[in-house]
Design a protein around this nucleic acid. Structure first.
Length: 373
DNA sequence: GGGAGGCGTCGAC
DNA sequence: TTACGGTCGACGCCTCCC
């Protein structure tokens, strides 16, 4: 082991870079006049009107309480009467992917090891580049921020700390356009006053459950009874929560394995529990999943369907196939069968339908998709 | 009783 | 007041098998 579990134990220096309200910034680049106006980037569901959810919002909109994940109608209600110049723009994932690529390309050269996490974030091990010096690492972080701005025109926030967990918390600490360095001896003081929700992996629901136990800050979490945490959250999650509160994380920065699953989900034109109606959407979803898997030259062995019910609760049904495959007909057949089975016990109409494949493997000896098409 | 693998659910971004 | 996307990863529980 590298001993990186202890803050500073292995002498690692890890940087996390996070693009500020990424989708909204991309829209601001295309239309600079949006910068000064509350701008809400929306995923419209296709049911017409304002049905859908907010993907992200710029800082002008956030000041009015608009947040990722909230219904578009709720966002409109927050802005109504207060921000007549607010803009609601539909997401354009293809465009954001291009901006992301430019920014990531600019960053990669600054790292010993580069770990792509998603369109708007990455980890970089910079231990060697910085010669183990925190001052040099801070300077490097500033260079990375400049490079991203020059290449893609966007601002980002960076955290420089002894491990991935702390870097992620640190990059979120000061936003937008922030740079937070936490040296090993400052870790405890840095974490102490933060809320438990500042720990990656602890979202609203888990933070609320911790709150019921009287635990609100990371300092309180560190002091909490380990047994009680494991009772409440399970053995693994409980233990991990507590070690996170101590700032421990041995997970190395490593190039990412390709995705472990592919899925497509869509909102139906209307709620329904009728197989004939749902099957109409299923083919398109299967085709979408298959395109993505085939483009990466991979095989899948598990197929699943996801049903989001009218009350927004979810049901899933999945199954292992006999052998890995890339056959679109087999995907359609399996998904159709799973959907039929699920509907046998369906009590609530379905609002959204999804298809997912996992248990992926590489196609032996070839990475091209030519053999599938 | 314990490990491995499969299924279903939760929840983060 | 309510309202409600798309995608991915992780973990708990169950079952099967030894």
């Amino acid at each position: 082991m590298d001993g990186g579990g202890a803050p500073g134990g292995g002498g690692r220096i890890v940087m996390h870079v996070d693009f500020d309200h990424f989708y909204a910034q991309c829209e601001e680049i295309r239309r600079p006049e949006l910068r000064a106006r509350p701008t809400v980037v929306c995923v419209f569901s296709g049911r017409g009107g304002d049905s859908g959810a907010v993907a992200t919002a710029n800082y002008a909109a956030r000041e009015f309480g608009v947040k990722s994940g909230m219904p578009i109608r709720a966002a409109r209600a927050r802005l109504k009467g207060k921000a007549p110049d607010a803009e609601f723009v539909p997401v354009d994932f293809a465009h954001y992917a291009g901006v992301s690529r430019a920014a990531m390309d600019a960053m990669e050269g600054f790292a010993d090891v580069f770990e792509y996490v998603g369109k708007d974030e990455a980890y970089m091990d910079v231990t060697r580049r910085s010669g183990g010096s925190w001052g040099a690492a801070a300077h490097l972080a500033q260079q990375v921020k400049n490079a991203v701005r020059d290449a893609a025109g966007i601002t980002c926030s960076a955290g420089v700390t002894p491990n991935k967990l702390l870097s992620k918390i640190a990059s979120d600490y000061r936003k937008p356009d922030g740079l937070t360095v936490v040296t090993p001896e400052k870790v405890e003081a840095f974490l102490e006053p933060l809320g438990t929700g500042d720990i990656p992996g602890i979202g609203g629901k888990t933070a609320a459950r911790l709150g019921e136990m009287g635990i609100r800050t990371i300092g309180e979490l560190r002091a909490a009874d380990a047994f009680a945490l494991q009772q409440r959250f399970g053995r693994v999650a409980g233990a991990r929560m507590r070690s996170a509160a101590m700032g421990l994380d041995a997970d190395p920065v490593a190039e990412r394995e390709p995705n472990v699953q592919y899925s497509r989900i869509a909102t139906l034109e209307r709620d329904s529990a009728d197989y004939g109606f749902l099957a109409g959407s299923l083919d398109g979803l299967c085709a979408g999943v298959h395109r993505a898997v085939a483009a990466d030259g991979r095989l899948f062995k598990s197929v699943g369907v996801l049903l989001v019910q009218a009350d927004l609760t979810q049901r899933t049904k999945s199954r292992m196939l006999r052998r890995p495959t890339a056959d679109p007909a087999e995907l359609r057949r399996s998904a159709g069968q799973l959907l039929r089975e699920a509907l046998l016990s369906q009590k609530i109409p379905v609002r959204r339908l999804g298809v997912r494949v996992s248990e992926l493997s590489e196609v032996g000896g070839q990475s091209s998709m030519d053999s599938f098409v």
